[in-house]
């Protein structure tokens, strides 16, 4: 894919009105604020502490707390989701090659296995709910809003549209979700959407984390813990290196599913080979607890 096309796709996909998320989910931020975590003073508890924001002058308290949440949330979400996006891109790659027969069936099976694994690793019911809602919305966006309109002329001969096979795969998956046999989690569906559109895996991962960060910033605006101008300042000057860093941190992270049952025990699902210990992981237990407490809030404006 040439750079101009990729750039144009990025513009489309970063639209705040798409289900790629703004003003929908707070990913635990609302619960974090409600539980008093914006009230924790900044850490300078000892001489060994080099962390937190030590720049002087320091940002206003609300902004500093917002940045802290974004950093911890980005890190744990990236560690959980990015290996799945990479794996989905790996699964979709052979499908584009029409000569490989049966590739689509194999891909569908692999996608289901990845989706099952994501479900079993997402143990907080609020995050599960949000992930599934956004996932299926992305597949709908793909089939309704990203396919070539029927009334439009076919693309010029010589440049066959290779995305057709992947669009078919995405439709098959959506059908399985409707039937209730596949969950349709966000990172899986995001991977399919971007692979179908032809966005590179690297761009896809980076954009996914950007969108997560931006939805947190949008949630902050709606909660009135961050002003719209301050939000823009954060996105431009503070959040970019955070995204670059977590994406790079997870660049070696991968998923290796193998069919191997221990002696005498029969397993239906494939097992995760994680000898290298670089598979998906949760890095923020506090975020898990607070996220799962979302529905306990006496009043709330977000659904996660």
């Amino acid at each position: 894919m040439d750079e101009d096309t990729e750039m144009y796709l990025m513009l489309l996909l970063s639209d705040g009105n798409l289900p790629t998320g703004s003003f929908v989910a707070s990913s635990g931020l609302e619960a974090y604020v409600k539980h008093g975590f914006f009230g924790i003073p900044s850490s300078n508890s000892g001489p060994t502490r080099t962390s937190s924001l030590t720049s002087s002058p320091s940002p206003p308290s609300l902004t500093r707390s917002t940045i802290n949440f974004i950093r911890d949330s980005l890190q744990t979400y990236a560690h959980c989701s990015l290996p799945f996006i990479s794996a989905v891109h790996d699964v979709c790659r052979p499908v584009k090659d029409e000569s490989a027969t049966g590739a689509a069936d194999d891909a569908l099976t692999s996608l289901k296995e990845l989706d099952d694994l994501y479900e079993s690793m997402t143990l907080n019911h609020i995050a599960r709910r949000a992930s599934k809602a956004q996932g299926v919305a992305l597949l709908t966006l793909l089939s309704r809003g990203m396919t070539r309109p029927l009334w439009l002329q076919d693309p010029p001969a010589g440049s066959p549209d290779k995305s057709i096979l992947l669009e078919k795969l995405a439709d098959d998956l959506k059908l399985e979700i409707r039937k209730g046999v596949v969950y349709g989690h966000l990172p899986i569906c995001w991977g399919i959407l971007t692979a179908t559109l032809g966005l590179s895996c690297e761009r896809s991962k980076h954009l996914h984390i950007f969108l997560h960060a931006r939805s947190l910033v949008s949630a902050s605006i709606r909660m009135n813990t961050l002003g719209p101008y301050a939000a823009q300042q954060l996105l431009l000057h503070v959040i970019r290196p955070l995204i670059d860093n977590v994406v790079m941190d997870c660049s070696k992270s991968q998923i290796c599913l193998v069919r191997r049952s221990p002696s005498t025990i029969v397993l239906v699902d494939p097992t995760v080979d994680d000898e290298e210990e670089n598979g998906p992981a949760t890095t923020w237990p506090l975020g898990e607890i607070l996220g799962a407490r979302h529905d306990l809030q006496h009043s709330r404006i977000f659904n996660s």
């Binding site: 955070l242 860093n245 025990i265």
Partner: peptide, 26 residues
């Protein structure tokens, strides 16, 4: 945790010191 051959939960908790922000930019 597996029940009757199906994986029902895989909880991976990873706590690493100063993970992130160490890398030099691209």
């Amino acid at each position: 945790v597996w029940i009757a051959g199906r994986r029902i939960a895989r909880d991976v908790m990873l706590l690493e010191q100063s993970s992130g922000s160490r890398h030099s930019p691209t």
